[in-house]
């Protein structure tokens, strides 16, 4: 899957998870993937359901529902310099913002994300990525 450099940020600073989720969501807004209300829904989801968006050690997948304002499906990747905590035992340094329109299209996005975070070596590289190009290369794999 090819990612625009506009939806990737590395070496970022955030004071807490909420700021990181908002910044990650802001990339989706600027790229035309979602309306502003989608990002509020992303934050609200964490408040309601807890830190379950931490889907792998150090990786958060903030998202909301299609009807919360998705315009075009896509992901954003927001990588922090230092992790922020969600709870006493959950923290994240990589935020992957997800905008999905329906379950079928969604699967392709999830597959691309799963290939990177399901591989311990690639996951380490993603967490340590210091350039946008490194992130693009990790996601730009054969499966597309």
């Amino acid at each position: 899957m090819k990612l625009n450099k506009e939806v990737i940020r590395v070496g970022q600073l955030a004071s807490d998870w909420e700021e990181a989720v908002k910044q990650c969501g802001q990339l989706l807004i600027e790229n035309g993937n979602v309306e502003a209300r989608y990002v509020s829904a992303m934050v609200e989801t964490v408040h309601t359901l807890g830190p379950y968006i931490v889907i792998a050690p150090g990786v958060a997948l903030p998202h909301a529902r299609p009807e919360d304002g998705v315009l075009q499906q896509g992901i954003s990747v927001y990588i922090l310099r230092k992790p922020v905590s969600f709870s006493s035992d959950k923290e994240a340094i990589v935020f992957i913002g997800l905008a999905a329109q329906n379950k079928v299209m969604h699967l392709n996005l999830m597959k691309a994300v799963a290939e990177v975070i399901g591989d311990s070596e690639q996951l380490v590289q993603l967490k340590k990525a210091r350039t946008v190009r490194e992130v693009q290369q990790l996601f730009d794999k054969e499966s597309g």
């Binding site: 309601t48 889907i55 997948l61 998202h63 999830m110 799963a114």
Partner: peptide
């Protein structure tokens, strides 16, 4: 199972 049945549960 995940929070919304739409995000991480599909992965």
């Amino acid at each position: 199972v995940c929070g919304m049945g739409f995000g991480s549960s599909m992965m």
